[in-house]
C-alpha cells in the first residue's frame, strides 16, 4: 500500500505536526509526501521533505495558485493524484482540516478526522465528544482519507533520509477563491504544538496587561510557549492562535502550567494528555485540579511571580 501525505512547511522547516503525520503514515504503507507552494516554495519544501527518514518519494507541486495552500486548488490537486494511493493523510492542523474533507468529498469518501490510533488499514481510533470518549471506527471506503493528531504520533526526524523528488503537474485553477492577506506574527517562542513546556493563562489573569506581565517572564524562564483558555482569547488577553482546547490547539507537552484556568471540558480536551500538569488556581474545587499532578491553591498574582523567581 502507498500513502499520500500532505506535508506543510513553515519558516524554512517542516512543521512538526507533518512529521508526526509521516510517522502515522509509515504504519500504513510506503509514504509519498506531497508538498505544495509557489515554484520557489515548493522547491524549498521538497528539499526539506526529502530528508525526512521514512519518506519514499516527494511529489512537488509548484504553482502560484498553490502558494497559500487554499483548499480549492490543493484539494483538486490531491484528487488528481489520488489514484494508486490507499490512504491520503495530513496532520490535523488548520490546513489539513481545511483541505482534506474537501478532497474526501470529491472522492466520495467519508474522512476520518483526528486519528489518535491506527488499528489496521481500515480501522482507526478517534476522540469524540471533546475527548470524553474514544471511538474505534472501521471505514468501508476503498480509499481512506484521514487527518492525524500530532500529539499521538512521535514526529519523524527532520534529517537522515534522501528521497527522490518528482515534480507533478499542478495544472489546477483557482477561480472561486483568492488569498487576500495573512496576519501571522512571528515570535521567538516555540510553536505551541511543538513546545516542551507550555504556560497557559485564563480568565483569572483579569487583563491583557496582567496576562503578559505575569506569564511572559515565567515562559521566558522555562523556554515555554504561551497558551490560553477561550475566555482569555475572547477577552483579548491573548491572540486566537493561543487557544488550547476542543476547538483550539491540541497539545501534549512535558509540562503544562495552567494559571487561572478553571478546566472546562472543552479546555481539558486540548491538554489532558500533557505529561505533567500543574494548576494554579484560587478555587480548590476547580475541575482543573482533577487532572493536575500538582495543584497550588492560592492567588496567582502572588504565586506566579514567586514561581518565576524560584525557577
Amino acid at each position: 500500500m502507498t500513502v499520500l501525505v500532505l506535508v506543510e512547511t513553515e519558516a524554512g522547516q517542516i512543521r512538526q505536526a507533518s512529521r508526526s503525520a509521516i510517522t502515522a503514515a509509515t504504519k500504513l504503507g510506503d509514504v509519498h509526501a506531497l508538498v505544495v507552494g509557489d515554484a520557489a516554495g515548493a522547491d524549498e519544501a521538497a528539499a526539506l521533505t526529502a530528508k525526512v527518514p521514512g519518506v519514499a518519494k516527494v511529489l512537488k507541486a509548484g504553482a502560484d495558485v498553490l502558494a497559500h495552500e487554499l483548499a480549492e486548488p490543493v484539494a483538486d490537486l490531491i484528487v488528481s493524484l489520488a489514484e494508486g494511493y490507499s490512504h491520503i493523510v495530513a496532520a490535523s492542523t488548520a490546513v489539513g482540516k481545511n483541505i482534506l474533507p474537501r478532497a474526501a468529498a470529491l472522492l466520495d469518501v467519508q474522512p476520518i478526522p483526528d486519528v489518535v490510533g491506527i488499528v489496521d488499514a481500515d480501522t482507526f481510533v478517534r476522540p469524540i465528544y471533546a475527548g470524553n470518549a474514544l471511538a474505534t471506527v472501521k471505514s468501508s471506503d476503498a480509499k481512506k482519507v484521514l487527518t492525524v493528531r500530532a500529539t499521538s504520533f512521535e514526529p519523524a526526524p527532520a534529517e537522515g533520509g534522501s528521497a527522490p523528488v518528482e515534480a507533478v503537474n499542478a495544472a489546477v485553477q483557482d477561480t472561486v477563491s483568492r488569498f487576500v492577506s495573512a496576519q501571522t506574527p512571528t515570535s521567538d517562542r516555540p510553536e505551541l504544538e511543538a513546545a516542551r513546556v507550555i504556560v497557559s493563562g485564563g480568565r483569572g489573569l483579569g487583563s491583557a496587561e496582567n496576562f503578559n506581565a505575569l506569564l511572559e517572564p515565567l515562559a521566558d524562564k522555562l523556554g515555554a510557549a504561551i497558551g490560553a483558555s477561550r475566555v482569555a482569547v475572547d477577552s483579548g488577553y491573548a491572540p486566537n492562535d493561543f487557544q488550547v482546547g476542543q476547538t483550539g490547539k491540541i497539545v501534549a507537552p512535558e509540562l503544562y502550567i495552567a494559571v487561572g484556568i478553571s478546566g472546562a471540558i472543552q479546555h481539558l480536551a486540548g491538554m489532558k494528555d500533557s505529561k505533567v500538569i500543574v494548576a494554579i488556581n484560587k478555587d480548590a474545587e476547580a475541575p482543573i485540579l482533577q487532572v493536575a499532578d500538582y495543584a497550588l491553591v492560592g492567588d496567582l498574582f502572588q504565586i506566579v511571580p514567586e514561581l518565576t523567581k524560584d525557577l
Binding site: V176, S177, R178, T184, N240
Partner: peptide
C-alpha cells in the same frame, strides 16, 4: 479565518 499561526483573509466568489 482563524489559522494555526494567526489569521488569514480570503475572498470568495458567491455563492460560497
Amino acid at each position: 479565518r482563524e489559522i494555526d499561526g494567526g489569521t488569514e483573509t480570503v475572498s470568495l466568489a458567491l455563492p460560497a
